[in-house]
């Protein structure tokens, strides 16, 4: 974090190179617009695309929230019911080899072009990282602390709420960070498949009319959305896991 300026300078250099080369080699702006053109478009057409943003944000956040809740619920269920875990866990792992996106047309047939199939897609891509990370966190619970809790006479419920759950929190946050990015991707792709509003829609429209600058604006918006969501989770993590960030006498 201290040397953040080195990659920042590098990034700035790349953007300048992009700007210079598009001008130098007279690259047509429908193939590759210069950063300055993209920026200009982003500012000028704000009123044209702003309603798309809110639609995607709402979709992303609701899908993320539902996906994460289901992911946590599944993890807890599998954890407390070892038999179910034995049965379901391998299937769950196997299912992750299916790119969720190929299920999208099916979901459209079943649920139409409304919000529901989109939420389902986002949920499907989101829940898995959370489930796996959470289960992992439960499994890695410190043996010494488990032993202490047993000797102290903790009940199963106390073992879970006072030890296993807080112990799994760092893992859960890693899962959340992965899911956050997935949820934005899920939202945009589900919009491609058919929607009336959203960054995905704006992107498809721009692409079919060869407004490459607008495609870039849409990409920029997606990146921004990812960053904001990711950043928000890191902020919450810093607060919730503040014990991890205190200076230790011996680590």
């Amino acid at each position: 974090m201290r040397k953040i300026w080195i990659p920042a300078v590098f990034l700035a250099f790349l953007i300048v190179m992009w700007e210079v080369s598009t001008r130098l080699f007279n690259i047509e702006s429908w193939i590759l617009p210069a950063p300055s053109i993209i920026l200009q478009e982003a500012v000028q057409s704000w009123t044209n695309y702003q309603h798309h943003i809110s639609s995607t944000v709402v979709l992303t956040l609701s899908g993320f929230a539902i996906g994460v809740s289901i992911g946590l619920l599944i993890a807890v269920l599998l954890h407390v019911l070892p038999f179910v875990r034995q049965m379901v866990y391998p299937v769950l792992l196997l299912s992750q080899n299916i790119p969720i996106i190929v299920l999208a047309p099916l979901l459209v047939i079943w649920f139409g072009y409304g919000t529901l199939p989109k939420i389902i897609i986002i949920t499907l891509v989101c829940f898995f990282p959370v489930t796996i990370a959470t289960l992992d966190g439960f499994r890695q619970t410190n043996r010494e602390l488990v032993h202490y809790m047993k000797m102290a006479g903790a009940s199963k419920q106390q073992m879970f709420t006072k030890l296993e759950l807080p112990h799994a929190l760092p893992s859960i946050f890693s899962g959340l960070k992965i899911s956050a990015t997935y949820s934005v991707m899920g939202a945009v792709i589900s919009e491609w498949l058919g929607a009336s509003k959203g960054i995905g829609v704006y992107m498809t429209l721009a692409s079919s009319s060869f407004r490459t600058d607008r495609v870039f604006v849409a990409i920029l918006l997606v990146i921004l959305l990812c960053f904001i969501l990711f950043g928000a989770i890191i902020l919450i993590e810093r607060f919730v896991l503040r014990w991890q960030y205190v200076k230790g006498e011996n680590r």
Binding site: E144, L145, H147, Y148, M151, A152, L163, Q244
Partner: peptide, 16 residues
């Protein structure tokens, strides 16, 4: 279980 007060070899304090 839980009839006796216990202090283990490692402090076993909960880091959070």
């Amino acid at each position: 279980r839980g009839k006796i007060s216990y202090m283990p070899q490692s402090p076993s304090l909960f880091p959070w």
